[in-house]
């Protein structure tokens, strides 16, 4: 059989190099090598996430309170639905991939083309969804106040609903604090973007509105965030608050400890990068299938190999989903 797989011409000799003790081709074997090492890389990240989480076990953010957006449902609290949808999309693209591999075994070019196309579309939708998730996370929704010790204080009304900074702050129109830009200084130096409101404005608004309470990061016995009494809230805001946080980046995070944001960006980012490369590799193989390369080779092993990678990406997502959104 003529194939594109490298042959030494000494396959009949035991030590000739054509021996396959594990009954898989060289290419598939190397894909397994890669998958095992990549699985250990991801495990390292997730284990490090677990380490930080155990370190702050009584103050870690609750995923339901962080990821609760769904497209076109503004202001509706929809925890998990979106990420569940993303998981389905990825699992389904894994199914179409395995169907493509199956069609390849039977040398059905048309079917391989169809299924690989669906796989690529699924992967692209997934990457897009993840970008949307990132956008919501970075932008934030309600905003919070940061304390001297780097703790986050969030605002609630007496019914337990979140209250946004813009509904609290009494804007002081006489403030003379402006953003320092590069062009205004005596030296070419600028400052980080100023938040929309100052701590004083939040304090003033909070003192006026008697319905407001503060929620801290500390978890109660039941695994819910602690809500302070009105007096304690006022004291805490007066004594400890030093800055306003809107959204999340690598240094400040309105949802809780910055470590949560760091791990979120790093792990889902690394996984998203895997999906992106998977989509690109799939497109390359897809073009080859259309061109009839594998038809001429008389085997579709290449589809099988990218399939292995694609399923691996799905496998990793199953774990990321559990540890970021469920546990």
């Amino acid at each position: 059989m003529e194939t594109a797989v490298t042959k030494t011409g000494t396959e009949d000799k035991i030590w000739g190099g054509g021996n396959e003790p594990l009954k898989v081709s060289y290419g598939k074997m190397m894909m397994w090598f890669f998958i095992v090492s990549d699985a250990l890389t991801f495990s390292g990240f997730l284990a490090a996430y677990g380490f930080s989480r155990f370190k702050f076990i009584d103050s870690w953010p609750i995923a339901d309170q962080v990821f609760n957006h769904f497209p076109f449902l503004h202001g509706v609290d929809a925890p998990m639905y979106y990420v569940a949808l993303m998981t389905f999309i990825l699992i389904f693209s894994s199914v179409t991939m395995v169907l493509a591999v199956d069609a390849g075994h039977h040398m059905k070019q048309k079917k391989v083309i169809l299924y690989m196309f669906l796989t690529i579309i699924g992967g692209a939708i997934f990457v897009g969804s993840q970008a949307w998730e990132w956008k919501n996370f970075i932008k934030g929704e309600y905003g919070a106040v940061e304390t001297k010790g780097g703790q986050i204080l969030q605002f609630l009304d007496t019914d337990g609903h979140r209250v946004a900074l813009k509904d609290i702050a009494i804007v002081d129109s006489h403030k003379d604090r402006t953003q320092h830009e590069r062009k205004n200084g005596i030296w070419f130096d600028k400052e980080a973007a100023l938040p929309t409101y100052t701590v004083e404005e939040i304090r003033a608004g909070f003192a006026k509105n008697k319905d407001l309470l503060i929620r801290t990061q500390l978890l109660t016995e039941k695994g819910e965030k602690t809500i302070l009494s009105r007096e304690e809230s006022l004291r805490r805001l007066k004594a400890d608050a030093i800055g306003v946080v809107e959204g999340a980046n690598l240094i400040h995070n309105e949802y809780g400890t910055p470590l949560f944001a760091n791990f979120f960006f790093f792990i889902t980012g690394f996984h998203g990068f895997h999906v992106l490369s998977g989509v690109i590799i799939n497109i390359i193989i897809f073009i080859n299938v259309i061109l009839g390369t594998y038809e001429r080779r008389k085997n579709y092993e290449m589809v099988e190999k990218v399939g292995l990678y694609w399923h691996f990406v799905d496998l990793v997502w199953v774990f990321v989903f559990t540890f970021f959104y469920l546990v």
Partner: peptide, 30 residues
Amino acid sequence: KGLRRSVVWTAIFLICYLIFILLTEGDYIY
């Protein structure tokens, strides 16, 4: 069987080991 075991057992052993050490250490710091 050889391929299956070399992939699965290797990964599972190393992952369990890593998780055990890091979570124990994280709990200690807590």
